[in-house]
């Protein structure tokens, strides 16, 4: 390779990027994704998806099925499900059947077996990819919520989680998902009931604003927010409010009996003399 070539390429890239950066700078204030938009265009979203998948691959210690192997029916990664607290995929599933000798031989050279990252030391390793995913596509809310979950729940780094969620909120002010995660943080980690309430109620408003009119709204998220808010109010002793939220939740829940049980518990508490 002629050494002049990479230099020329670097120079050309620098000049081209410099020119465009100048135009970008002149066009006024931008959000954090604009620079990457400028450089990568719309392909940054695809890169962001790849980075998110990479994080999921790390969560599985490098053993992650490719698009050729299998795709989860709901299209969500295992890691995202974990953060939502309902990871249902089989941890004890048997090793895949080897179709031929090459496949069997190849299994000696890459991670096999279904394992998850665990513990403080390993857990943090997914964070760079989520950070990069968020940098590449600031509107991909999963990146913020999953990273925040790991930061606060597994690594006990609540301030970092809050800062990252706030960063996500700046880029996605209408995101009920980020607001929910932020509310969870205030409720479970900071024990700041007024802030948690305010944020979760805002999340409900955002959800109603964005999803309610849709033919197929994102009800699982709505249920999570309502559940979180109801629990918060119940624990704070605001039983009237808790009851109202549980009643609303029952309407959307696939297991109304379970919610009714909670309603009954609240009613029992309310019936007790003060």
């Amino acid at each position: 390779m002629n050494p002049v070539l990479p230099l020329a390429l670097a120079l050309a890239t620098a000049v081209a990027a410099g020119g465009r950066l100048l135009l970008w700078q002149q066009s006024g204030p931008q959000d954090s994704g604009s620079l990457l938009t400028l450089l990568l265009g719309e392909s940054r979203r695809a890169f962001a998806d790849q980075m998110f998948l990479k994080a999921d691959g790390y969560y599985h210690m490098g053993n992650y099925p490719s698009v050729f192997d299998l795709a989860l029916p709901d299209g969500k990664t295992h890691m995202a499900k974990e953060s939502e607290g309902h990871d249902q995929h089989g941890h004890s599933q048997p090793l895949p059947h080897h179709r031929d000798w090459l496949e069997a031989f190849g299994h000696h050279f890459r991670p096999t077996g279904h394992r998850h990252l665990d513990g403080i030391r390993d857990g943090r390793e997914i964070l760079p990819w989520l950070r990069l995913s968020a940098e590449l596509d600031p509107h991909r809310v999963d990146s913020y919520t999953v990273a925040a979950y790991w930061l606060r729940e597994r690594l006990n780094r609540v301030p970092d989680a809050e800062a990252f969620l706030r960063e996500g909120l700046r880029a996605n002010p209408d995101s009920y998902e980020i607001l929910f995660e932020l509310g969870r943080l205030y409720a479970e980690n900071n024990r700041d009931v007024p802030r948690a309430r305010a944020v979760l109620e805002l999340a409900i408003n955002k959800w109603i604003h964005r999803e309610a009119a849709k033919p197929a709204p994102d009800t699982p998220s709505y249920r999570l927010i309502l559940g979180q808010l109801a629990t918060l109010e119940e624990q704070a002793g605001n039983l009237d409010r808790a009851l109202a939220h549980y009643t609303r939740l029952k309407h959307f829940s696939p297991q109304p009996d379970a919610v009714q049980k909670r309603i009954d518990e609240v009613l029992t508490k309310m019936a007790r003399p003060k």
């Binding site: 210690m61 490098g62 031989f105 190849g106 000696h108 050279f109 991670p111």
Partner: peptide, 24 residues
């Protein structure tokens, strides 16, 4: 699939990155 050389067999980066131990 059977004729072409499987270069990916030699790519053990994932094992190194995730401290997966020695290959036999």
């Amino acid at each position: 699939y059977f004729i072409l050389p499987h270069l990916e067999l030699f790519d053990v980066r994932e094992l190194i990155i995730h401290d997966a131990g020695l290959i036999r």
